[in-house]
């Protein structure tokens, strides 16, 4: 018997965890779905209000960006923060820790549910909500007369009709690729919080993150000020942006792996 990892045992563990975690998870997903629908319904332009604000040749739906970010952050962080919260309660922790699977499998199940499933399901829920409302805008404005010619970047663009564009078509992913690992970093931090703290996991993790980030930023600011003393700043904005995004991506991968390793160690050391 392999005492570190066995694929059958891991499958059994995922099934077992779903029994307890699945209901809360599905309920959270329904709540998130409702919240997204509410935000969209409140913010989308209505045909009876006249011509909607446009971004070049599509209806402007800029409210989607903060909603996507804030609701997504809340969802994945809450899910991650609740995953190992059972271990803070004696009555639940004993049953969980005594389940015949390895600590590594228990940790991997946590990563699967928090980093993979929660991020994927949020993207899916957001996509179908966005898709449904874009189709709704398209159909409600289909009879609305709109024909315009405008000059954009030296070229004349003709716009016929009013259409909404899906967020994932509108977003320039090249521009945001540096942040693509951030959701995993967020889940890794809150997963660690769920195993580290025994009570009030979410609040304690959030406060710890805020304090840590503030301290790090202050140290970075002081260091940069000290290094940059009596120096002239020469900027190459395009190149700087590229470097910044690469640094963000690499550091989020490293930090995420670091937090996962600590979570695994904490899980191994967990006592009742």
């Amino acid at each position: 018997m392999n005492n570190t990892f066995n694929i059958n045992r891991f499958g059994l563990l995922l099934r077992r965890q779903w029994l307890d975690f699945g209901k809360i998870y599905l309920l959270s997903l329904i709540v998130i779905f409702g919240v997204l629908i509410g935000f969209y319904a409140f913010n989308i332009p209505k045909a009876q209000d006249g011509l909607p604000p446009m971004d070049l040749n599509y209806v402007s739906l800029r409210f989607r960006y903060p909603i996507f970010g804030i609701v997504g952050f809340l969802f994945i962080s809450i899910v991650a923060s609740s995953y190992f919260s059972n271990l803070g309660q004696k009555s639940k922790a004993i049953i969980d820790l005594m389940t015949p699977s390895s600590t590594f499998e228990k940790f991997l199940a946590g990563v699967f549910y928090t980093a993979i499933l929660s991020v994927a399901s949020y993207l899916f829920i957001f996509y179908i909500t966005d898709f449904a409302f874009c189709k709704y805008i398209d159909s409600s404005f289909s009879t609305f007369p709109y024909d315009a010619s405008l000059t954009f970047m030296g070229k004349i663009t003709h716009i016929h009709g009013i259409h909404a564009q899906l967020l994932n078509d509108e977003m320039d992913f090249e521009e945001y690729r540096g942040f693509s690992f951030l959701p995993f970093l967020v889940t890794s931090i809150f997963l660690l919080g769920s195993v580290y703290f025994n009570r009030f996991h979410y609040i304690k993790t959030a406060v710890s993150v805020v304090i840590s980030v503030a301290i790090i930023m202050y140290i970075v600011y002081l260091s940069v000020s000290k290094i940059g003393e009596n120096m002239v700043q020469i900027t190459d904005s395009q190149n700087n942006e590229k470097i910044a995004f690469t640094i963000i991506f690499v550091s989020s991968v490293i930090l995420c792996l670091f937090f996962w390793v600590i979570t695994y160690v904490r899980l191994k050391e967990k006592e009742v």
Binding site: M1, S91, S101, S102
Partner: peptide
């Protein structure tokens, strides 16, 4: 070490326990 080979040979009935719904 909480190895599965041992855990499946132990039945622990705690005083306080939680069972799912």
């Amino acid at each position: 070490k909480r190895q599965p080979a041992l855990l499946e040979q132990i039945c622990f009935i705690p005083e306080e326990f939680y069972l799912p719904s």
